[in-house]
C-alpha cells in the first residue's frame, strides 16, 4: 500500500515538473531568440534558415544602433528615461499628497473628488487622444517630452492615488495624532511617521508608473512627431522602416533588447512589490 501511494505521489510530481519546464521553454524561447539574434554578426543574422545560436558572438548590432536613424540610440534611451522617470516622480509626489488627503482628511466633498479622479480609470486615453492632441497644441506642449510626461502622469495618477490612499488608510489614526502631540508639524509627521509605513505602496506606484511609461507606444507615436524626441518603443519603428526591404533583423532585435532588458532586470529585482501592487490595484 505504501509504495502504491508513493508512486501515485511521485508520478504527478514528475509530470508537474515536465509541464512546468515545457511552459518555461515556450515562454523563454522568444526572449532567447531576441538575445541570440542581437548577438549574431550582420551576415549571420540574415541567414536563411536561421542559425540556432550565434556561431560568432558579436556586439556589432548594438554598436550599429548608434548609427541607425538620425540620432543615436542613447538619445532615445535618454528620452525614455526622462519621460518615464519624470512621470514616475510626478505621479509618486502627487499621489502621495492626494492619497494622504483622501485617506486622513475626510473633508467635505472629498468623496466626490475621489470619485472624479477614479473615473479616469474607466476611460482610457486612447478614447480622448484627439482632443488631447489639440489641448497640448494649445498649451504649446505639442511635440514636447514635457507634454508626454504630463499626459502619462494624468493616466497613472488614479492608480497611484488609489494605492497610496489605501496605504495611508490602513494606518491607525492615532499615529499622526501622536506625532502632532510630540511636536511634529504636518510635514514632520508625513516624512518621519507616515511615509516609512507607506513605502511598499510607494514602490508599487513608482514601479508601475515607470514600466507603463517606459513601454507606452500609442500616445508617444501620436504626440511626438520629431524623431529627436522619440522614446524607445517608437524608435523601434525607425529601426524597422529605415532600411525597408533589406531590414537588418540583428539591429532590430538589439533595439528590442535595449527596450526590454531594463524592464526584465527591474522586475527581477523588485518583483515582490510589482505583483503585490498588481493584485491590490485590480481587486480594488
Amino acid at each position: 500500500m505504501d509504495t502504491l501511494t508513493d508512486v501515485r505521489r511521485s508520478l504527478p510530481r514528475a509530470a508537474w515538473w515536465a509541464a512546468c519546464l515545457c511552459v518555461s521553454v515556450l515562454v523563454l524561447y522568444p526572449l532567447y531568440v531576441m538575445l541570440s539574434q542581437s548577438l549574431k554578426s550582420g551576415a549571420e543574422a540574415a541567414e536563411n534558415p536561421p542559425t540556432m545560436y550565434p556561431h560568432q558572438l558579436s556586439v556589432d548590432n548594438y554598436k550599429a544602433l548608434q548609427d541607425t536613424g538620425q540620432y543615436g540610440i542613447w538619445q532615445h534611451v535618454g528620452n525614455s528615461l526622462a519621460v518615464a522617470g519624470g512621470a514616475t516622480l510626478l505621479t509618486v509626489a502627487l499621489a502621495t499628497l492626494a492619497g494622504y488627503g483622501f485617506a486622513k482628511l475626510r473633508f467635505r466633498g472629498s468623496g466626490v473628488l475621489f470619485f472624479i479622479i477614479l473615473a479616469t480609470f474607466m476611460i482610457p486615453f486612447q478614447a480622448i487622444i484627439t482632443p488631447l492632441f489639440s489641448i497640448l497644441h494649445g498649451l504649446g506642449l505639442s511635440n514636447t517630452l514635457l507634454g508626454l510626461t504630463l499626459v502619462y502622469t494624468t493616466f497613472q495618477l488614479p492608480f497611484g492615488i488609489f494605492l497610496m490612499r489605501n496605504s495611508f488608510a490602513s494606518l491607525p489614526a492615532g499615529i499622526e495624532e501622536a506625532a502632532f502631540i510630540d511636536g511634529c508639524g504636518f510635514f514632520g509627521a508625513m516624512t518621519r511617521v507616515l511615509l516609512p509605513v507607506a513605502v511598499p505602496g510607494l514602490i508599487s506606484t513608482a514601479l508601475f508608473t515607470f514600466f507603463t511609461c517606459w513601454n507606452e507606444f500609442f500616445a508617444a507615436l501620436i504626440l511626438i512627431t520629431d524623431e529627436s524626441k522619440f522614446t524607445l518603443p517608437v524608435t523601434l519603428t525607425v529601426l524597422a522602416s529605415n532600411q525597408l526591404g533589406t531590414l537588418n533583423w540583428g539591429i532590430m532585435q538589439a533595439g528590442v533588447a535595449v527596450t526590454a532588458i531594463p524592464c526584465i532586470v527591474l522586475y527581477l529585482l523588485l518583483q515582490r512589490y510589482y505583483v503585490a501592487g498588481l493584485v491590490a490595484g485590480s481587486v480594488k
Binding site: 515562454v27 522568444p30 526572449l31 514600466f211 517606459w214 513601454n215 507606452e216 507606444f217 518603443p233 517608437v234 523601434l236 528590442v256 527596450t259 526590454a260 524592464c263 526584465i264 527591474l266 522586475y267 510589482y274
Partner: peptide
C-alpha cells in the same frame, strides 16, 4: 513577458 512592452 508581461513586463516587456507591447511594442517590443
Amino acid at each position: 513577458p508581461v513586463v516587456i512592452g507591447f511594442a517590443a
